[in-house]
Write a protein that binds this DNA or RNA. Structure first.
Lengths: 152, 152
DNA sequence: GAAATATAGTTGACTAGGAAACAATACCAA
DNA sequence: TTGGTATTGTTTCCTAGTCAACTATATTTC
């Protein structure tokens, strides 16, 4: 009783993309769990790593999250003593976020987990294949003017 | 004060994959919104489309979701009158889910949205490029024994 | 310089999922 | 046939987001 035939989900590139992406992210999340850090927290920490300080609202823009989400995310990272929040001297509304010493020390460890995860999933591809995939994904991103850092 | 240099997030293929995948899924979700359906609901409906009836637990396996999540998802679809739930005559614990007439009529419309979304993101790739990407993703999926349908 | 407007961050209500405890039923083994 | 175990689906509690209302401070405009 399948009236009009409908192509399978698997005919869409988006389907495969999502399936693989989900698994890669999930596996990465599991690795991070050993360090008691989520993917979103990792991205924030990595952003802060080469920038000294950053305003929450800038972070929201960069990660494509709402300011509310960043507010709560920052709160969690502060509770873990991985980042710190300072009032802006210039603007009474504004704040800046920065890594604590502890947080800064953790980033290279987390980066190693990210490397390992990427290698586990894509390490078997030849350099040419990797480059082809990366180029295609970059082209799609550019074409659609995608610029936010994927958090989840 | 960036002590040890850490490679940028963008050096990972997983980063690009997630960025593009997130945007493709988000755009698809927005299209589905016009029909008042979520991506997860669409996947369930598409699964039911060529199968007559399906047990919730089978659905959970196929979609890689918990039975609890399927329970709630089914409840939402039933509330929208897009699927129906019947008690299994053979097994007092079991149920089966099926599309309603209305639900079945909706599937081809939703499939058209899926096609359009895929085309919007990947239509500009040459057939060879599309195939290369699909093959690589399939290979990664196969290598990791990924078999669940990506819902989100 | 006062009033309107804009911006930064927080909060509360809501959503969709996971994990684990649970109830009901089925299966199995002695 | 009865007692233990397995399985099905539901429920409760938790998490991490969104959205929209809110507070406080800045900026602009007249």
């Amino acid at each position: 009783m399948t009236h009009p035939p409908v192509p399978a989900l698997t005919t869409h590139l988006g389907y495969w993309l999502r399936m693989v992406s989900n698994q890669v992210s999930l596996a990465f999340a599991k690795r991070l769990e050993a360090k008691d850090v989520t993917v979103a927290e990792w991205v924030v920490m990595r952003e802060l790593y080469d920038v000294e300080t950053l305003a929450p609202s800038r972070l929201a823009d960069r990660l494509g999250m709402t300011r509310g989400a960043i507010s709560k995310l920052a709160e969690r990272l502060i509770a873990k003593a991985l980042i710190a929040r300072d009032a802006s001297p210039a603007d009474g509304r504004a704040q800046t976020l920065r890594l604590t010493g502890e947080g800064r020390l953790l980033v290279p460890e987390l980066a190693a987990l990210a490397d390992a995860n990427d290698a586990a999933y894509f390490g078997h591809l030849t350099p040419a294949e990797r480059k082809a995939m990366e180029d295609m994904l970059k082209a799609v991103a550019k074409r659609q003017d995608i610029r936010t850092i994927p958090v989840e």
